[in-house]
Simulated scan of single mutants.
Amino acid sequence: MKMMTNLFSVFDPSSSIFNISINWLSTFIGLLMIPSMYWFLPSRYHIIWINIMNILHKEFKTLLGNPNQKGTTLIFVSLFSLILFNNFMGLFPYIFTSTSHLTLTLMLALPLWLTFMIYGWLNHTQHMFTHLVPQGTPAILMPFMVCIETISNIIRPGTLAVRLTANMIAGHLLLTLLGNTGPSMMSVMVIILLIVQILLLILESAVAIIQSYVFAVLSTLYSSEVI
């Protein structure tokens, strides 16, 4: 039990001043990167970021399928940016990965899902009821399908939050475990370990992008059901 506690302690927000946790400030470090692109226009960083935002805007607009709702994609593009910055910040040494905690991921997923549900049930009640019974379902199976669809709908914020948290923890934990074995290895094995660590770091960079994209896309799909 002690070993497991020590193993996962690298993910704990333990740095504090006056009993106030300061590790969560890493969530806002990404904001420091944003003003730099406005000093010189058009800078390369600015052009790349604007192109990424435009691509995401077009894709989210297609997923929503409702061109009358102007500015709807803005929240999902912002959500993607926030998670992406936090995921990448966690790859740097001595920076706390806030997206590896359910505290942050559930805080992002739960209000979004709750807002969609309240909006859908208040404004499109009949449409929401039709979603509980898939088309072509036999009459005898309808009560069961309503229960299954209701449960799958309720667990959506949990699956969103846990998916992001688990993927962030898994890679970081593997890097930590391999890194801790370095001092007890021979020189040849250390070189192999470094190569493996670099490959894992590249994989984690890809996971950081993919998981932020998946979170934003799934949120967009959930909202498209109620608009």
Rank of each mutant, 00 (worst) to 15 (best):
L160H: 08
A109C: 13
E59L: 12
T165V: 14
T62N: 12
L82V: 15
N123M: 08
A109D: 04
N180G: 08
G120V: 03
S26P: 00
P157D: 04
S152G: 14
F215R: 03
T5H: 14
I83N: 00
L114G: 11
L32D: 05
S205E: 07
S223E: 04
T27F: 06
F85S: 06
S152L: 15
L63M: 14
P134H: 01
F116S: 01
G90N: 05
F40M: 08
V10H: 11
V10I: 15
L31T: 11
V226E: 02
P157S: 06
I198Y: 10
V214G: 00
Y45A: 11
L79M: 15
F215V: 04
P35Q: 10
P93S: 14
I75S: 11
E225C: 08
P157L: 05
I151N: 00
Y94E: 15
T181R: 14
G90W: 02
G171C: 03
I155Q: 05
L164C: 08
P42F: 15
N54C: 06
L178I: 14
Q135N: 10
P13T: 09
P183Q: 09
T103W: 06
T115N: 08
I22E: 08
I195R: 09
V226T: 11
A206N: 15
M33R: 13
T150G: 11
Q211T: 07
W49I: 12
L199K: 11
F76N: 02
M89G: 03
T176M: 09
L106V: 04
S26F: 04
P111M: 09
I210P: 00
F76T: 01
I202E: 09
S78M: 14
I75K: 11
H124W: 07
M117G: 04
L164F: 06
L104S: 01
V133A: 00
P13H: 12
H172K: 13
I227S: 09
I34A: 13
L63N: 08
F18Q: 11
M4V: 12
L7W: 09
L7D: 05
I20P: 00
A139K: 04
S78G: 14
N51D: 08
M128W: 02
